[in-house]
Design a protein around this nucleic acid. Structure first.
Lengths: 186, 186
DNA sequence: CCCCCATGTAAGCATTCGCTTACATCCGAC
DNA sequence: GTCGGATGTAAGCGAATGCTTACATGGGGG
């Protein structure tokens, strides 16, 4: 009993399985045996191709965060990220940010939030206002998105989990525009 | 070498240590040995007095959430909880909500968020507006508080961690009043 | 054809974890 | 005083975890 010999496919299967499981359960509650099993792969191959569970997790986060912000110009960033976070069914676990939000203790996760979201995203938002405390205001808006994601996906809060994506995006952008003293187009 | 024989003090020391460690590291990354060691107590006593690690965690959450909302009338709830979440130094880990936010997978944590915050808190907020989707709007405000807490404490985001509490509370209540179509007194 | 290395497998090692058990010791009731 | 339960201690058990090692095997290059 042996897999077809295709290293690339094996690596990809491991990454996909890890993405799904880290997103569902977080880092601590996902075992390398679970990942290998879901991927249909011997667990020794996980270490051959990724070195360690930590390194695999870092790869998952890097892949996800690269995908998250790549195609949103500053003015539509809030709305786009919100829509993206709302659009999936509540329990679709392989969504960007889920692994991060469910693995908050892990150094890699905290680093992604601080670096990727905390700098790039916040900078884009801060550029939308010229208020004195623009940075703080941008972080407050960022906090909102994170909080919505946490309540919806991690804690399964019902009104947010069932809400219409466009309605939420509209309400949030409306209130955020007060903070940013800025009216988003669209 | 033996502790003075005081069961109540031992129970309390275990609860204090557990509160601190669960808040700092979350449920998964806190071991019963760590708790007992910090409390200066033999770990077998943890099981004698609380039954299991899960039960101890549930006790911690129940104690914290009881304290959290006990003295805030509806109109000042948002501002009060915000101030309380902002008022501590960033790394003060035995603050209410921290254990919950750092242990999002645990059933007890999710239940506390849904029941305690998601019902009592959201209901109080929803009472402040008569908009059609009052419940959703209340949850959005709740999400904001949670997001601020997550970014500040779990991820250590700098602008939020250093911000002046009154400034944050003022900005948030200002934007939230747009959502709730309501002006908070004070 | 056959060699050899990339790929895959099976087994297990060392550690840590939650929890239990068996025993020592203190202190109040009588 | 002594007896018995409440309190504290030491040791370790069984399971799970991340990771390693030693071995099988298939398939492409010479």
């Amino acid at each position: 009993m042996s897999r077809p010999r295709d290293a690339a496919a094996t690596k990809a299967a491991l990454l996909d399985a890890a993405t799904k499981l880290f997103g569902e359960r977080g880092f601590d509650r996902t075992t390398v045996r679970d990942i290998a099993s879901l991927a249909g792969v011997n667990q020794a191959l996980l270490f051959r191709y990724y070195g360690s569970k930590d390194a695999l997790f870092a790869t998952v986060l890097a892949t996800q965060s690269r995908e998250l912000l790549e195609d949103s110009p500053a003015e539509h960033l809030l709305r786009n990220v919100l829509l993206r976070m709302m659009e999936e069914k509540p329990r679709r676990e392989d969504h960007p940010l889920y692994a991060v939000l469910r693995s908050s203790h892990h150094d890699s996760a905290a680093e992604v939030v601080r670096r990727q979201l905390g700098e790039e995203y916040a900078r884009a938002l801060a550029s939308l206002t010229d208020a004195e405390d623009a940075e703080l205001r941008a972080d407050l808006v960022l906090a909102w998105v994170v909080g919505i994601g946490v309540l919806r996906t991690v804690f399964g809060k019902q009104p947010l989990a069932n809400a219409d994506a466009a309605t939420v995006a509209s309400l949030v952008t409306q209130a955020a525009s007060v903070l940013l003293e800025h009216t988003e187009p669209g």
